[in-house]
Simulated assay, not measured.
Amino acid sequence: MTQKIVRLRIELEAIEPCIFRIIDVPISTNLRSLHELIQTVMPWEDYHLYEFTVGDRSYGEPDPEDAVWGRKVYQAKSLRLGMLIDRGVDEFLYTYDFGDDWRHRVLIASVVDAEPDVDYPVFVGGERRAPPEDVGGPSGFMDFVEAISKRSHPQYKDMVRWYGGPFHPTDFGAAEIKSRVRELALRRKVSYDAFQRSRGMRDN
């Protein structure tokens, strides 16, 4: 049976011009694995908590304190993209860092057959560099870009020092992201092959 591949478009909300990434992932991908992939393609540094919102349900890493606040958070690894597609879901929300509140709109663009001899996931493309960690959310990021883009700005030197160098909004490092996704795909392939071999040994 031919594996199905889902094309996702991930857009960072509340920022103009739009920052987005496009990726192709197996339909069997669960939300925890998708979290790891989004961290890779933006890229973020996975310092903070995350959560997916699908309809009225939240998926992430459940914490006992969630019940104290009357919240129910389901395991992200329990929900796969194929299950969402079967339900007719065509978009959902991914939130990273509840302080800065980075909200990503995840759109299911298409479902196609996998290409032979391609290791998925695959980075397809995107536009514009993602915000630095802990910059202060969308409004903080807009202030940061304004300050670091103008040498005459009173906060220019402070922002360059804080960031560690110049910031180029349109150069998001596509080649580096593609390489990182390729490495991630290889690691997952090795893990899957090892799992299949161990299962075969048990069956024998």
Rank of each mutant, 00 (worst) to 15 (best):
residue 29 T to W: 02
residue 27 I to S: 14
residue 21 R to L: 11
residue 26 P to D: 06
residue 20 F to D: 11
residue 35 H to A: 00
residue 17 P to W: 13
residue 40 T to K: 10
residue 39 Q to G: 15
residue 55 G to N: 11
residue 21 R to H: 12
residue 12 L to Q: 08
residue 39 Q to D: 15
residue 34 L to V: 04
residue 19 I to A: 13
residue 23 I to F: 05
residue 11 E to T: 11
residue 13 E to I: 07
residue 49 L to P: 02
residue 29 T to R: 06
residue 51 E to M: 14
residue 37 L to S: 07
residue 13 E to K: 12
residue 45 E to T: 08
residue 27 I to A: 14
residue 36 E to C: 09
residue 34 L to H: 01
residue 57 R to Q: 14
residue 31 L to S: 00
residue 33 S to Y: 00
residue 24 D to M: 12
residue 19 I to Q: 04
residue 14 A to S: 09
residue 32 R to I: 00
residue 53 T to N: 10
residue 26 P to K: 09
residue 15 I to E: 07
residue 53 T to G: 11
residue 54 V to R: 03
residue 19 I to E: 14
residue 35 H to D: 03
residue 50 Y to Q: 13
residue 25 V to G: 06
residue 41 V to W: 01
residue 19 I to P: 03
residue 12 L to C: 03
residue 28 S to L: 15
residue 32 R to D: 04
residue 46 D to L: 03
residue 57 R to I: 01
residue 35 H to S: 01
residue 54 V to Y: 14
residue 27 I to H: 08
residue 38 I to L: 14
residue 42 M to K: 05
residue 50 Y to R: 13
residue 32 R to M: 00
residue 38 I to E: 13
residue 21 R to E: 13
residue 33 S to F: 00
residue 40 T to G: 03
residue 23 I to Q: 13
residue 40 T to M: 08
residue 35 H to Q: 01
residue 42 M to A: 09
residue 35 H to I: 01
residue 36 E to I: 09
residue 30 N to L: 00
residue 27 I to L: 13
residue 23 I to T: 07
residue 29 T to F: 03
residue 32 R to N: 02
